[in-house]
Nucleic acid binder design. Structure first.
Length: 111
DNA sequence: ATTATGACTTATT
DNA sequence: GAATAAGCCATAA
């Protein structure tokens, strides 16, 4: 038996909220944070960074407000970020010339 | 308890 | 638009 990854309650919340994002849509760190009652998008990013369930849990559908793709699989370097883009493209997410996710894909979770 | 880190955001320069 | 600073908050050490 592989030892189950240790998940904090906060991470559970984040991952649970992630499942509400349908394929073909994305959410922002901030909106996700608000949806789970947290005032810090950075904390959400912190949780996703250590996401042990990627890409089963669609942490790739979360982007910053700048709509630039941040990190993936715990890193913010080119190879990982690029793979995240490819993943999104395969889910019909459209990028513009600056590699920004089109606004029309971003969904509101709560407020 | 305290410090440092970060896949963030906003305001300022 | 780039660089800084400040605010935010969960985690790890």
């Amino acid at each position: 038996m592989p030892t189950p990854p240790t998940i904090t309650p906060f991470q559970q919340k984040v991952f649970l909220a992630l499942e509400k994002i349908p394929s073909g849509s994305v959410a922002t760190y901030k909106r996700l944070a608000i949806a789970i009652g947290c005032k810090s998008a950075q904390a959400v990013g912190q949780a996703l960074k250590r996401n042990p369930f990627a890409p089963q849990v669609p942490c790739h559908r979360v982007i910053p407000e700048s709509r630039k793709i941040a990190g993936y699989k715990g890193k913010k370097d080119e190879p990982d970020v690029h793979s995240k883009k490819v993943l999104l493209i395969s889910e019909a997410i459209i990028f513009d010339t600056e590699s920004l996710v089109q606004k029309s894909h971003i969904i509101n979770l709560k407020k």
